[in-house]
Design a protein around this nucleic acid. Structure first.
Lengths: 292, 292
DNA sequence: CGTAAAAATGACTATTGAGTCAAGCACATT
DNA sequence: AATGTGCTTGACTCAATAGTCATTTTTACG
């Protein structure tokens, strides 16, 4: 049993409920069923614990959407919606983490956490930007900040709604809804009816050089592996078939407990095609524990 | 000098910056320049202190918009925008309080604070509802929750932007912007292009019976005083003149340090008209300290 | 002034909770 | 069985800080 993971999960649960400061290491220990001292073999301090929590969950939630974005099979508008949908599904799955995250209150703003938050925000915005420009072309640029900001507001508040209320908002409906609202607003801007309020200058704090080094190394590697695999597939004559296989891998990998055997099988299909073998191997290494 | 107020202000400042748990009573005392013991002559506990902060500021921020809403002089659309504008101006004025509020982290969710938050949310929603129905009529009802929710998201996130970034977003522009976005979305709903996602059932936690008893007694009294004064004025043949005077009072009362003499003079004008005298007197008592 | 009431003080208490560590324990290897 | 390795424990230290209270200072007023 992975005790480290168990501690992370128990901690998330407790912190989501009562907040960081009102959750003591003792309570976490009790909840996992180990002694307080034991926690300190896994995490050097309470602050390191919460940082680890963020590291553990953030990419889980965000990576899902990223991978969907790579697949060129869907038309842009639907793909955008699908990405939100997948994001919302992730939120539902990691409800407690999200609750904790939204409470916001954590260690007295450590350097490390702040950097991470900053990077996540930047990542979100650059993802939104990519999608907006994909949908509306470069003309949207002057309005991009306004649109991105509103999208982010609405997205965040629906997230809040999902995790607090018992009501079951359907992720796919929410995704479509969101994209539809963005579309209406974008078209209004493009028709020249409204003028933008936000610009690069005032949004500087939110535009992050995405090349920055950080805590997401492993994520970045996986990101690249996906990307290059999808690229190779698109060059392939039988791309449709391999896309289907890869999408199935993506779907499986998004589950909280992916079926390893299924994934090995799917990867085997890809690797049997010589031109894809190498890339598939790379991704497999990123997603699955080394087979012994 | 009002020491109680000084303590509240110092506390807000510190808590906005470092959070509730990381601000000690000692630090607050030091910052005001009194001893720790002294704090306890004004506030029985740290928790009472933060509750008093909320009580002190919340109505300041919200009441502004309410009063603008009473004046029937402006056309609905502009009035709506003006209300947001006034709200945003308030936010700018009480930046630190807003920062503190948005941090969210406070005493381990006391009954009293939770109730207050709930009431504020309810108040916001019922205010939005009134405005939406005023603008679009009863037909908007099926879409009201979606619209209100989105409005609230965007509003909140612009609030956040105002208080964090140094950039000077102009409250009047923001107000217009917000109402314009709402309008676009509302028209889309009314044209039958989109269907709503939220309904009464799932939004029940947000619909508050506004008749509930609470911490806003003094606010409620003032609210009624305004309301009945405006009503009387509208029945008056020379209503335009008196509206102008009353609007001027409203404007003055919104300032952080209203000019008492000016207000006394304005009230005098109203009171000299017999049919308004009584209502004006009532409001004056609510807004100004008893003249000795 | 002088005196009493009110307000302010800061040393003190009591509690909480993060982090340490020496001793104990479980399990694998030889 | 003996030895070693690393995990686990919980009693302990230590710092932070909410809240108290006997004493001092200020104010108010005859």
């Amino acid at each position: 049993m992975d005790k480290r993971k168990a501690i992370l999960e128990a901690a998330v649960e407790l912190i989501a409920e009562k907040g960081y400061t009102h959750t003591s290491m003792q309570q976490i220990a009790d909840s996992v069923g180990v002694s307080k001292g034991s926690l300190y073999t896994f995490f050097p301090s309470k602050e390191d614990l919460i940082i680890s929590i963020y590291e553990h969950y953030q990419q889980l939630v965000f990576e899902r959407a990223f991978v969907v974005g790579l697949d060129g099979n869907l038309p842009p508008y639907e793909r955008f919606a699908k990405q939100f949908q997948v994001q919302f599904e992730g939120i539902l799955e990691y409800k407690s983490y999200m609750k904790m995250h939204m409470r916001g209150e954590s260690a007295q703003s450590s350097e490390k956490l702040e950097g991470m938050g900053h990077r996540m925000r930047g990542r979100l915005f650059s993802w939104l930007e990519r999608n907006l420009i994909g949908l509306y072309g470069e003309e949207i640029t002057p309005y991009k900040w306004d649109l991105m900001w509103m999208t982010q507001s609405i997205y965040t508040s629906y997230t809040g709604l999902m995790i607090t209320s018992e009501s079951d908002l359907a992720p796919d409906q929410l995704g479509k809804h969101l994209v539809r609202q963005i579309d209406i607003l974008a078209k209004d801007y493009l028709s020249g009816n409204s003028s933008p309020l936000l610009d690069d200058e005032m949004m500087r704090p939110f535009s992050v050089g995405m090349d920055r080094e950080g805590a997401f190394t492993s994520f970045a590697k996986r990101e690249n592996a996906w990307k290059s695999l999808y690229e190779s597939i698109h060059q392939h004559k039988q791309s449709n078939y391999y896309l289907e296989v890869t999408d199935r891998i993506s779907e499986e990998s998004r589950k909280s407990t992916p079926d390893e055997i299924v994934m090995r099988g799917l990867f085997h299909l890809l690797k049997s095609e010589e031109t894809l073998s190498e890339k598939a191997q790379l991704l497999e290494e990123q997603l699955l524990p080394p087979s012994n």
